[in-house]
Design a protein around this nucleic acid. Structure first.
Length: 635
DNA sequence: TTAGGGTTAG
């Protein structure tokens, strides 16, 4: 188990023996011996006057704790201000008041402030209670510091508190967030030993973790066991709208739309009414997979059931329209949501900026980007990335680089997406040196390249005749664990070497990928066949074609065309016809490239006569047959 | 006063 090396985590290294230097820090929350508790009052008040029994007067502090903290409608400065006041009050407000404030901060994801406020609490001699510790433990989990959360759990137990389902649910989430799914599952089943029954929220958290980890089938099994009440996974709670929603969303994201719809019907059959989240998730899936009519019908059903579309629903619809290039209707939808009193958020603006970029309306995209701040949001990395990508895709690298520089000037940290977009843009324009310099800058900015970055680099370097540079990066990757070598990376290099007529090196790479446990795909085979054909090694090319079929890798239209072109150049009409028959048997339709190959073949005088023999049984599409017949009549 | 779900970029 590895603990994070942050300042706070180091406080937990020796919980039994806190030193005087750390007793005022977070760790002291867990040591009653180090804290001299100050008395706390039984009600939160800032007023010296007793409230009137008939007209309760709420002080600003009470209003802040009971209203703002609950709704999340407060600024950090306000929280800091009230916290400092509370801590100095005499008598000190009850811990429940501090918990309200800490809970509000945690809900607003101000985790680091929860940590610092907890340190201040203990250094002021106040003793956190069970709820405080649960809030703290949950915050540790949310910042992927399960190690510290477990120390908090241990201390909680030592202080005589019995961990509740809330405690365990936080820990399950923490394990899931650290990709420790098996440990999360074990904890779920262990809860019972602590005489704590998992609740539907614990199960929802577990199901969500399983889904995110790609273990949808296990999530479905747990959900089914919940429905059956058979005690599987040690749980006895029934599924609810949230558990159904999580699985429906996952199935949609996995493209299993029909299964998602079935589950949606099942929940309704069981009397669990879908809410706006479930409808939005399913509508998103339906629109994403182009099932527009069904999506529209579901939207109508939702409204008919009295469920109002919310901000996320509108964002889903705006994104769907943008993907279709219908940015005009998207903008109309934006006006409609504002008219309905729903304020657009950064998701809305980023989606619309992307929509404008997709249809090439870069000025409109830029204009909207510049109005984000005046609309109450601040552009984030996604906003910048969307715009940079828009410029790169439209060959406007100069503008893209300007946006990148503005991004850095404004203190928005570029991400790997930023660099991938810029690298692609630079390579597209053949600016290899600039791309290489940007790759170096990416490293100085401490942005880790992703597998996509390496794919872009290797692919584009090869295509720009920089094979040695590509190989240098490849060798670095071979000797490091920073990025897994993939079939795509090998394909880029194989393609480069085939085109450079260095077939032997391409062969070496082809064999190397198998040794590394990678399975060549249809692109690998097609490229190798292409390379062999160029070198006139048709027999070997045909052998590889048969080998790929034998290994269960189905040749596609590109593979067939590549090999047919090889045989065509070798004037081997019989072999081309054989391949056309094979294509027909495999239900593969010839494309324009196939037609041109056949026409080229026929245009050779010696083939024309032969053509008359096999044309009546020609296994090709009507378009290809028509082309051939045209050629015949013309000839 | 503490725990779970849906929307944007390569």
């Amino acid at each position: 188990m590895s603990c994070s090396k942050g300042k706070l985590s180091s406080l937990f290294t020796n919980p039994e023996r806190p030193t005087s230097s750390n007793s005022s820090k977070l760790s002291s929350l867990f040591f009653t011996t180090q804290v001299i508790p100050r008395p706390t009052s039984s009600y939160p008040t800032t007023s010296t006057e007793a409230p009137s029994p008939s007209v309760p007067i709420q002080t600003p502090l009470e209003h802040f704790l009971q209203t703002n903290c609950k709704s999340g409608n407060f600024t950090l400065n306000e929280a800091l201000h009230y916290f400092d006041r509370m801590i100095l009050m005499q008598p000190v407000p009850p811990m429940a008041s501090f918990n309200r404030l800490l809970g509000g901060l945690a809900k607003s994801k101000h985790y680091s402030h929860v940590f610092s406020f907890c340190i201040k609490l203990t250094s002021s001699g106040l003793l956190p209670d069970f709820i405080t510790l649960n809030i703290l433990l949950n915050c540790f989990c949310n910042v992927k510091r399960v190690c510290d959360a477990l120390v908090a759990l241990g201390s909680m137990i030592r202080r005589g508190y019995k961990p509740s389902a809330v405690t365990f649910t936080s820990l399950v989430k923490g394990f899931c967030m650290e990709d420790r799914i098996d440990e999360a599952l074990r904890l779920l089943e262990k809860m019972i030993k602590f005489q704590c029954q998992p609740t539907v929220m614990t199960c929802g958290t577990m199901i969500n973790g399983l889904c995110r980890a790609g273990k949808t089938s296990v999530a479905l099994r747990l959900h089914e066991d919940m429905s059956k009440g058979n005690g599987g996974f040690g749980v006895y709670c029934k599924p609810n709208v949230v558990t159904y929603g999580i699985i429906i969303d996952r199935l949609c994201k996995d493209g299993m739309i029909d299964e998602a719809k079935d589950l949606f019907l099942e929940m309704k059959d069981r009397g669990i009414l879908p809410d706006v989240v479930v409808y939005s998730a399913l509508i998103h899936g339906l629109y994403y997979y182009e099932k527009w009519e069904v999506g529209k019908a579901l939207l109508h059903e939702m409204v008919h059931c009295g469920i109002k579309p919310n901000l996320v629903t509108f964002n889903v619809l705006i994104a769907a329209l943008c993907r279709r290039g219908n940015v005009k209707e998207s903008s109309d939808l934006l006006k409609l949501m504002v008219h309905r009193g729903i304020s657009p958020d950064l998701f809305t603006y980023n989606t619309l900026i992307d929509g404008f970029c997709l249809v090439g309306c870069l000025n409109e995209a830029r204009e909207l980007f510049h109005t984000i701040s005046s609309r109450g949001c601040q552009p984030d990395a996604v906003s910048y990335n969307v715009l940079i990508n828009g410029y790169c895709k439209n060959w406007k690298i100069h503008e893209a680089v300007n946006v990148y520089e503005e991004m850095i000037r404004r203190g928005v940290r570029p991400t790997v997406v930023t660099y991938n977009a810029l690298l692609t843009g630079l390579f597209k324009l053949g600016r290899v040196q600039d791309a290489q310099m940007l790759f170096a800058e990416m490293q100085t900015q401490n942005v880790l390249p992703s597998s996509s970055t390496y794919k872009i680099l290797l692919d584009r370097l090869c295509k720009n005749d920089c094979i040695p540079e590509a190989m240098e990066i490849f060798h670095t990757l071979e000797n490091s664990s920073s990025c897994e070598l993939s079939v795509e990376i090998f394909n880029s290099l194989i393609n480069g070497y085939c085109k450079a007529r260095k077939l032997e090196i391409a062969w070496d790479l082809y064999h190397k990928m198998s040794k590394k446990g990678l399975v060549p795909d249809v692109i690998t085979y097609s490229m190798m066949i292409h390379g062999l054909c160029i070198e006139g090694q048709l027999e070997k090319a045909n052998g590889l074609f048969l080998e790929m079929e034998g290994k269960g890798c189905a040749p596609n239209i590109v593979t067939y065309n590549t090999l047919m072109r090889g045989f065509c150049q070798n004037n081997n009409l019989e072999k081309v016809v054989e391949l056309l028959h094979k294509m027909s048997e495999r239900n593969l339709s010839p494309d324009n490239s196939t037609t041109s190959i056949v026409i080229d073949l026929l245009s050779k005088d010696e083939n024309y006569r032969k053509c008359l023999d096999w044309l009546p049984t020609f296994p090709a599409s009507s378009e290809l047959k028509a082309e051939v017949t045209n050629f015949k009549s013309f000839a």
